[in-house]
């Protein structure tokens, strides 16, 4: 049975209508892929490296495998972890007023909210800037490293890849960098401000994160995980 044969009937637009009897068997469904955003079915075919398959209806990217993407993602995630450690402990910003110098590391910035009514914000800040991005990098390495070396996927790899995907909007390193830029301008009138090495480590971290997310094709990773499991 081809796709066009089944298109005939119409369905009411309720949110949760009774599903019609399935048009495909489980074996036939193996050769289909659905758009994650609009539910449109497509017949699955081999997508060459460097090619991008898009949804016929909403043009969302379905698959875009890239050459040696896994090794590149692992390398980038590892560099991001190293940069994160560097950014944490080196001085981030330096402020000097009348000969006195105040150094502030990323840790100080996070702890700025730790007193009084705003204490809960400390946990939120630490999560958004350091903890969640680090969990993402670690999860990706954990999921992809065994597969890149040709081994079977690690235990609970599925869980950790889902975790990395769900945490993506909550890892806000790049938003933080823009916040730093705004803060620099705000203090400029009060005192002399200079940027420490940790700041550049953090900028590099943001660039590496963006590069890594560009290489990553979610569906390709899922399919590889599935085929290596069986």
């Amino acid at each position: 049975m081809s796709l066009a044969d089944v298109v005939a009937e119409e369905l009411p637009p309720e949110i949760n209508p009774v599903l019609p009897p399935p048009a495909f068997t489980a074996e036939q469904a193996e050769h289909l892929i659905a758009c994650p955003l609009c539910d449109t079915l497509h017949e699955e075919r081999e997508i060459a490296e460097g090619e991008t398959a898009r949804c016929a209806r909403c043009h969302e990217v379905l698959e875009s495998p890239r050459r040696s993407a896994m090794t590149r993602i692992i390398m980038l995630a590892l560099s991001a972890l190293v940069l994160m450690v560097a950014a944490m402990f080196f001085p981030f910003l330096e402020l000097s007023v009348a000969g006195r110098v105040q150094r502030s590391s990323l840790l100080d910035t996070i702890l700025a909210f730790s007193s009084g009514m705003t204490a809960p914000l400390t946990i939120a800040m630490a999560s958004l800037i350091v903890i969640l991005p680090s969990i993402r990098f670690l999860s990706l390495v954990y999921v992809l490293a065994p597969m890149a070396f040709g081994h079977r996927p690690a235990r609970h790899a599925e869980f950790f890849f889902r975790l990395a995907d769900h945490l993506r909007p909550w890892a806000m390193a790049e938003v933080f960098i823009v916040g730093v830029a705004v803060a620099l301008v705000k203090v400029a009138g009060l005192a002399h401000l200079s940027i420490g090495p940790a700041f550049w480590a953090f900028v590099a971290l943001v660039l590496v994160t963006v590069l890594k997310d560009n290489f990553m094709c979610r569906v390709t990773v899922w399919k590889t995980l599935e085929s290596r499991r069986s």
């Binding site: 089944v6 369905l11 599903l19 659905a34 079915l41 209806r57």
Partner: peptide
């Protein structure tokens, strides 16, 4: 029109 998973009962 396109066929969605819902209309195909999948």
């Amino acid at each position: 029109p396109v066929l969605t998973a819902r209309r195909a009962g999948m």
